[in-house]
């Protein structure tokens, strides 16, 4: 069986798994963005807290995916929840790091000017600092997205969603005609998903960043 004949016969499955992959990555990045930005906003003024947060997030990032899946099988069991939780953990590092960087890079003079105009701390954050940090935060989101699109493949081991299922099923069918097409299609489709999402986020960055900040 060749890659193209496999695709002809089972394009619907490939399409469905691709959609699952997108949904899982979307949920994980969304979740990580909310948590990551809130954490970064909570600590960015305090040097010590920033250090602690970065050490923790960095350490979480170095742990192998399979180790997380192992731990979550024990704690949560198999399924989407385990897979998406792990993806969100990995997405946290680029998002937290970039949000902290973006917020800390805002020119203090601008913040003082905002204070002088009578803005409250919350107003300064939401109307001055976060908009100025937005491009940096978005690029963190982009890195996180591409990264977890690849990691999501391993999620199939815990019965998670997505194209990893093809890769694992190909390995399981070792020696049969569908092994190679399945692994190839799964891998290439994941790279394509990463490329498309990366491109979309780049476009989003272009159109949503105020002209003065580009």
């Amino acid at each position: 069986m060749t890659v193209s004949s496999y695709l002809q016969r089972r394009w619907d499955v490939v399409l469905q798994l691709t959609l699952e992959h997108l949904i899982a990555v979307g949920i994980a990045v969304g979740f990580a963005t909310v948590v990551g930005v809130l954490l970064a906003v909570a600590v960015y003024r305090n040097d010590r807290a920033v250090t602690v947060l970065l050490v923790v997030v960095n350490t979480l990032f170095t742990v192998p995916a399979l180790a997380y899946f192992g731990a979550l099988i024990v704690l949560v069991g198999l399924g989407w929840t385990s897979a998406i939780t792990v993806l969100a953990i990995y997405a946290l590092l680029p998002i937290v790091r970039n949000t902290v960087t973006g917020l800390r890079e805002v020119d203090p003079a601008i913040v003082r000017a905002a204070t002088g105009m009578g803005m409250s701390r919350f107003g300064r954050l939401t109307r001055v600092e976060l908009p100025l940090a937005y491009p940096v935060i978005l690029s963190g989101l982009r890195v996180a997205t591409v990264l977890i699109v690849g990691i999501a493949a391993i999620g199939a081991y815990v019965a998670g969603p997505g194209l990893g299922e093809l890769i694992f099923s190909g390995l399981g069918a070792l020696g049969t005609a569908r092994a190679i097409p399945e692994i190839t299609i799964g891998t290439v489709a994941i790279v394509l998903v990463a490329l498309v999402l990366d491109g979309l986020l780049a476009l989003l960055g272009r159109f949503s960043t105020p002209r003065g900040l580009r």
Binding site: V146, L147, V149, G150, I151, A152, A153, I154, G164, I167, F168, G170, L171, I183, G186, T187, I190, V191, V193, A194, L195, D198
Partner: peptide, 12 residues
């Protein structure tokens, strides 16, 4: 682009 390659697919 290589960053998007899933390690597991490459490995298998």
């Amino acid at each position: 682009i290589g960053q998007g390659i899933p390690a597991i697919g490459l490995l298998f």
